[in-house]
Amino acid sequence: MWEQVKQALVDSTARFLTRFANLLPGLAALLIALLVSAVLAWILAAIVRRVLAGLHFDERLGRWGFSSLAEWSPMKSPTRLISRSVAALVIISGFLIGIAAFDFDWTHLFVQKTFDYIPDVLAALLVLFVGNILARFLARSVLIGAVNLNLQYARFLSIGVKWIVIVLAFAMALEHLRIAPSIVELAFGILFGGIVLTLALAIGLSSKDLIAKSVERDAKKASSEPVEDPLRHL
């Protein structure tokens, strides 16, 4: 019996060692891939950082209306954010290459699924980016237009418009990523409706006095003699 136990142990050890030996090239490949990608990431990040610094990217971004991006960035520098994102992308790619080196079915499947998912991620990022630009542009248009119409709640209107567009873009991005689509749809409906209702209530309540004043002013105007505005601009 001991002979059989001994044999089973030897067989198991041999199988384990064989499997481990089979795993070693893949592990080495993963380590090398990670090492190379880290070096490549460091070089690429340095190049990107230098190019963006040369283009005064941080200042330009501020001028284009993306000053809030600096707040989310490491050391308040969007240049660093982009260079680090590039580095992370390269390292992730290296990791995927390393994983693919293992000769297992599940690693192949994992890599394949990851690569299949990349177009969705890119599309979601694009939707977020365009949504952000659009939100800022519309917010600025509304702010300037409302100030020129002498509306005291100009800022509030502008923020409302900005968040409506951002929420819409975010929901579209999540839809692309196929993350809990039914929940996203429901949540978006509630959130969007909530923002619109909040805006309507806020404007309605704050304009109550304005409308009263306006009616009062119109009544006064009607009772008094019409005064001609002597200003001619054009």
């Binding site: 001028r63 100030v147 800022r155």
Partner: peptide, 19 residues
């Protein structure tokens, strides 16, 4: 009314004017 417009602009359009 023109002054009110100026004051409102000064309050709300600072982020644009500062550019």
């Amino acid at each position: 009314p023109m002054l009110e417009s100026f004051q409102l602009g000064n309050r709300e359009l600072q982020e644009i004017w500062s550019l």
